[in-house]
Design a protein around this nucleic acid. Structure first.
Lengths: 191, 191
DNA sequence: GTCTAAAGTAACACAAGTGTCACTTTAGGT
DNA sequence: ACCTAAAGTGACACTTGTGTTACTTTAGAC
């Protein structure tokens, strides 16, 4: 009953991700997005009312995928195995912490529809932190974690570590291994 | 021979710092700056040709102050004392790592004058890293640092730790102490 | 074939920021 | 008193991005 679409929502999200990671939140605009997809800017407005709405929906999409992967952490029984899995997952998805940070920049909207969309995204972020909290709780229970350090700081360190710039281009495997080493035992020599 | 100035360069830098930290690089503009200082936008162009030039000069100003403070690290003989001083210095200047990050976003300019300004800023950043490298070298020499971990990652962890968001508003002293604990000994229980 | 409705386009008015320039203001030297 | 030159102003032309709208295109139902 209508002509074929020139681009799927999936295409849209893919290009959105590229632009957000390359140019940051402020660098993202519909002109760039349309250009990347070889469509006119106006076409995007057929599917999203504005830039914020598109970004919120995109963020939810990304978050859902990450949460599905994150759920597999439950399959590992011990804290150590969970930690290894978690670090690997984060380093397989280096965009996620950056996108979460970018997501924090979304302005709070008056509009009811936008408020709902925003709330759903908040809800996913909450679900993620609950999943991570279970992991921390197990670590506490197994007496594996330093009791003098707050939960949020442990999670903060894990998530922030992905954002340390690797200016000297140290190979990924060595880099991840070293991050794990510091996270677990610190920078001091413990031998 | 001329009328009095309504604002000093120091005033300009102070307002610039506020805006950059509140609104980020993209949120900064001459309109906002002029408003904050109760002057007209045009007046700023009497002292700086454009936004980038102002920001580069501001960054150099900030960096010089930080480098002066950082130089005091030399007064402490041992690695442990230097580390304590360094962490305290960073947590007394939480804006510095954020400003350095913002500084990275400055576009590379064609203009010769801007290129020079930019180079001078790069030079200051280099001086900072050289100062920090001496600190790391001492740590290596004293066999205090984990030898399997690269220098840049150690510095990265130290600088990145200031940017972990303290969402649950854990008191500053407890927060800093915990960061020091993780940096030195990791998240795992080592007792 | 032609009608329909979704898909896509391009031009519009608008908003916000940029850098410039002719102008006004004013402190100090004469 | 008045001239000068730096300090400051406000209007202008320009750029870039926004969201809307009237329009064209096209696949499929009839």
């Amino acid at each position: 009953m209508a002509r074929d679409r020139k681009f799927s929502t999936e295409d849209l999200y893919h290009a959105t991700k590229q632009i957000l990671l390359e140019q940051g939140y402020d660098g993202f605009n519909f002109g760039l997005l349309a250009e990347k997809l070889n469509i006119s800017r106006g076409a995007i407005y057929k599917y999203f009312d504005n830039r914020e709405e598109l970004i919120v929906h995109f963020m939810r999409h990304e978050m859902k995928i990450f949460l599905t992967d994150l759920k597999d952490v439950e399959q590992f029984p011990s804290f150590d195995e969970k930690l290894t899995f978690l670090l690997e997952l984060i380093f397989k998805n280096p965009a996620v912490p950056r996108l979460i940070e970018i997501g924090q920049r979304l302005p709070i909207h008056e509009n009811l529809k936008m408020k709902e969309d925003f709330f759903k995204l908040e809800d996913l972020r909450l679900k993620m932190y609950q999943q991570l909290q279970k992991f921390i709780d197990l670590g506490r229970q197994e007496k594996k974690l330093n009791p003098s350090v707050p939960d949020t700081l442990i999670l903060g360190f894990i998530f922030q570590s992905i954002m340390i710039p690797n200016h000297f281009e140290i190979p990924q495997s060595k880099w991840v291994q070293s991050i794990k080493e510091i996270l677990c035992h610190g920078i001091l020599n413990h031998h």
